[in-house]
Amino acid sequence: MIKTIVSTALPIDERFMIKKNVISHGTGKKRICIVTGTHGDELEGQFICWKLQRNILDNLEQLDGTVEVYPALNPMGIDSITRGVPNFDIDMNRIFPGNPNGSMVEQTAHAIIEDLKGADMVIDIHSSNIFLREVPQVRININDSDTLVPWAKHLNVNFVWVHEAATVLESTLAHSLNSTGTKTLVVELGVGMRINHYYGKNMVNGLLNLMYEMGMWKQSVDKEKIITPLLSIADEVSFVNATHSGIFSTETHNDQIVEKGQLLGQIISPLTGEVIEDVLSPTHGYLFTIRAYPVCYEGSLLARIHNL
């Protein structure tokens, strides 16, 4: 059943609406929410929402509980290829828990939190941005690691990154929900503005596996096909940033072990024909992020490696 959780008038003959699809079956009381589309340039979650619902609707007898799917928390952003909220020039994932008396976008954030609160599990799906390609991973604030890491292991991702707490991240949807007792896992996979079907199908298997572990999906997923993720606990990640501006050219794919000193790519000058910089791995480790967008400035992130 489609429900509209936010409906606000726009100036000229249009309403701003956030919708969810609620699928219930059986007598189980468990509720899982799949949310995505917070950043308008991240699209991997769109395929996952569709594919998950196809699987559930085609096998509805396996469901014992409620699945709620929110494909677009920032519908205006997705519709206009805008990462933030178009009218406000604001990153939606920096204004939670919102404010019922604030601007339209703050009220929207508040309504989203109120709607999700109390779910047994929330999965917040992101797909990086247009600049970086990510292996499927779950990101967890170190303060929530005891509660969330065991659940993250069911999600069929390659990597679980338990990162340090940062004050600025307290304004995210996941932090707002986790701090009020609603378990929320942040998933990152793929790259902005694109859909990777392989990743998407794996994630749907992971979601069904998680639902099975939660006791709301009767059919066990083939455990042989569930990836055991590499777990990275705070401060074990090396960042590779560009030391020069130019075009980042690479034939390196993420999801592989790299050696210290291994060539990850080059920063090249199309004007002079020079190689400006050889980008080398600073460590032996697991390469989980690689830059996808070629134009880079000094400081642009090129790669992230979990130290082994």
């Binding site: 606000t8 008038a9 726009l10 100036p11 701003f16 604030g102 601007s103 339209m104 009220q107």
Partner: peptide
């Protein structure tokens, strides 16, 4: 010159 609903 345009106003969004519920916005200050």
């Amino acid at each position: 010159s345009l106003a969004l609903q519920n916005t200050p």
